[in-house]
Nucleic acid binder design. Structure first.
Ligand SMILES: [Mn+2]
Ligand SMILES: [Mn+2]
Ligand SMILES: [Mn+2]
Ligand SMILES: [Mn+2]
Lengths: 231, 231
DNA sequence: AATAATTTTTAGGCTTATCTAAAAATTATT
DNA sequence: AATAATTTTTAGATAAGCCTAAAAATTATT
């Protein structure tokens, strides 16, 4: 098999790649175009910087930009973004599975590794890991064509009392939230049963790994689980 | 064990790191200071760019610069350079040992990976590989303090007829040379016996893995071997 | 519909890392 | 020692990616 170091999809700088990734993520939840301010906030930069970059990316045909109307990725732009996300998530799996990283330690390193240019490298990492389909946070890994298979997931907060489910992913992947879950010994794959929901503040008593635990509604909003099986 | 993402030794850009590494390598063979032109040639840039960067690095105390006199790394500069080389060579071992890369495919990728900032990452890669001491080209891997243990190596071309030795490293790591060695099935660790040296052009008949092979003097100059054991 | 608040863009600057061309210093040759 | 060749530095530009401040457009409120 022949690998080319640079293919048609990777003549982008790390900064351009980060913009594409941010716009991709924001576009999944945006109803219309992704706004300048939203991008600026996500990338911790200024709106004026976003406008500059967005014009450059529009010239490169990876997004459509109309003044004051926000941006939308083109098919090509979506594919490039998905392939960067693929690399990010594969590296996260590698760090956790092979290098003893905890799931709250992988993000910053994956943020760097995702920009390494070498198709063979990521293919081999993929193979070494046994072609995983989800990352350590339960997020799906796009395939080599940038296609993502979505699993049906609901917030734990949507479940009723006595329903039982499995933790599939976390909505918030911040270090703070992940460390909270570590402390409470809550991990992807755990079985969760809703024991009681307090009507006043929606705090919820759950049973996880045979241990009862009280969680706030905010926590329940950030745990993504399998659609309920009433028990 | 606690890992800090940024320590005192890594507030350098990739470009600065590449300069430090180039100067380190050139400094090993230079009698006096490393010249502006030598650095420019090694990094495929212009002498004027080198002068600019060298001034910046002198401000950062990692090298001593005197106009027209070339540069010398400080102790600190040498350590930083050695730690980048450590990362480069560990990644090369990883690519070959774990990801099925051939030794002629690793350089460009390692050139990128060496700039990833994460002390834990490289320590874990080191551990995963079993703390290797040489890279796929036979070059020594600096330890965590940047110290390098040099093995005694001589050019194959210095051996006499009937002397036997072991291939320890290659002097030239260009893809062309490495692919030549692949083709001839010559690899690190092979036993080599000098059968005959032609006085006219110093072409040499050697026995490698029980196969006789004629190599040019230029090849013999680029194979680094154990000091001879006369047989 | 007019006005106010917010968002977005433009204009002008800055830093890093490059470059070319010309000037200055060093080194080699006669 | 003078001159020629080479190396190195300086001066002035350029492009990427960011910034602040001000202007323009859009959206929300009265
Ligand atoms: Mn990134
Ligand atoms: Mn993740
Ligand atoms: Mn490099
Ligand atoms: Mn090497």
């Amino acid at each position: 098999m022949v690998y080319l170091l640079y293919n048609q999809y990777n003549m982008f700088t790390s900064s351009e790649e980060n913009y594409l990734k941010a716009i991709y993520h924001l576009g999944l939840v945006a109803k219309k175009g992704v706004s300048t301010n939203a991008i600026a906030k996500k990338l911790d930069t200024k709106a004026s910087s976003v406008t500059d970059m967005v014009k450059k990316l529009a010239d490169k045909k990876v997004l459509i930009y109309q003044k004051y109307q926000g941006v939308n990725l083109t098919i090509e732009g979506k594919k490039i973004a998905a392939l960067i996300i693929r690399k990010h998530r594969l590296w996260e799996v590698f760090l956790v599975e092979k290098l003893n990283f905890n799931w709250d330690e992988v993000h910053d390193v994956a943020e760097q590794l995702e920009h390494i240019k070498s198709p063979k490298l990521i293919d081999e990492i993929d193979a070494l890991l046994g072609f995983p389909t989800v990352d350590p946070h339960g997020d799906p890994i796009p395939d080599k064509e940038g296609e993502i298979t979505l699993r049906k997931k609901v917030k734990l907060s949507t479940l009723k009392e006595n329903e039982e489910t499995v933790l599939l992913a976390v909505k918030d992947s911040s270090d703070d939230f992940l460390r909270y879950l570590n402390k409470k010994k809550i991990a992807i794959g755990n079985t969760i049963k809703v024991i009681h929901i307090e009507p006043f503040d929606h705090s919820t008593l759950v049973q996880i790994n045979d241990v009862e635990l009280l969680i706030t509604n905010e926590v329940a909003e950030n745990l993504l689980v399998k659609e309920s099986n009433a028990v």
